[in-house]
């Protein structure tokens, strides 16, 4: 670097050049939220979804934490989005199963809990950025899908909930060995705010894929939407 040449240092031009940078960003505010930009970003999101699907290795396991690393039960939180807890008729609750399954129908908690029980300390990562490690208890989703005779070659499984929530997963993530149908947290029956009587825990995906208050599972080959997915959020949402 050579010492500045004073004759070239026109103060006005230097100042105006420095002013150009913030001006560029301020001008950016208009087109960054325009229609064309939005659809281009949406298109690129499809590409990232595709990359995530390619990168996903069903054999990779999420960290299972020791009890000492659990999030304290008093910090077991729900998402920041304002949701109303649905009135769940817990004693009469059944999980409806339909689509590409051998034995469609309604499954009671009694039937579901005949499957082997697993307790796992898994991290729940919210799309907002926060995370927590609760102690979950329940059955493996893949055991339940085997019980109802779901076609493992089907592409998707979608879920409906006691509120207006719905979402869906690719079959590989649904059959992942850490995907749970949880009816317990911290060794106690799941509280209503956390999805009682039965919720999904899917540590290989962002939190909005772990549906609460589930009432219906459908095995399908047609790509289903989801509450947040239909509002612009990632469909695959892998971690």
């Amino acid at each position: 670097m050579t010492p500045p040449d004073k004759s070239q240092n026109v103060p006005g031009s230097r100042r105006s050049f420095i002013a150009v940078l913030p001006a560029l960003f301020l001008a950016g505010c208009d087109w960054t939220t325009g229609k064309r930009t939005k659809s281009a970003l949406k298109g690129f999101q499809q590409f990232n979804d595709w990359v995530q699907q390619k990168v996903f290795d069903p054999g990779k396991l999420a960290t299972e934490y020791a009890d000492e690393q659990l999030t304290p039960e008093e910090d077991f939180r729900v998402n920041g989005y304002d949701t109303d807890e649905p009135d769940m008729d817990i004693p009469n609750w059944v999980l409806m199963v339909d689509g590409l399954v051998r034995s469609p129908g309604d499954y009671s908690m009694e039937q579901i809990s005949t499957l082997p029980k697993y307790v796992k300390n898994l991290r729940h990562c919210c799309v907002e950025g926060w995370s927590m490690v609760p102690k979950w208890g329940g059955v493996l989703m893949k055991d339940f899908l085997a019980m109802v005779g779901a076609d493992p070659n089907a592409k998707y499984v979608s879920v409906e909930c006691g509120d207006d929530y719905y979402t869906a997963w690719d079959m590989a993530s649904t059959l992942h060995s850490q995907t749970l149908l949880a009816y317990e947290a911290y060794g106690k029956p799941l509280g209503l705010e956390h999805g009682a009587p039965l919720r999904v825990v899917m540590p290989v995906k962002l939190g909005y894929k772990s549906a609460k208050w589930i009432t219906r599972l459908t095995v399908t080959n047609e790509k289903p939407g989801g509450y947040w997915e239909d509002r612009g959020y990632d469909w695959f949402a892998g971690l």
Partner: peptide, 18 residues
């Protein structure tokens, strides 16, 4: 808002992952 991009969470995520 003057130093953020995207307008909302997913808008920011879309820009970030591009």
């Amino acid at each position: 808002k003057s130093v953020t991009l995207g307008g909302w969470l997913q808008g920011g995520r879309q820009w970030h992952f591009l």
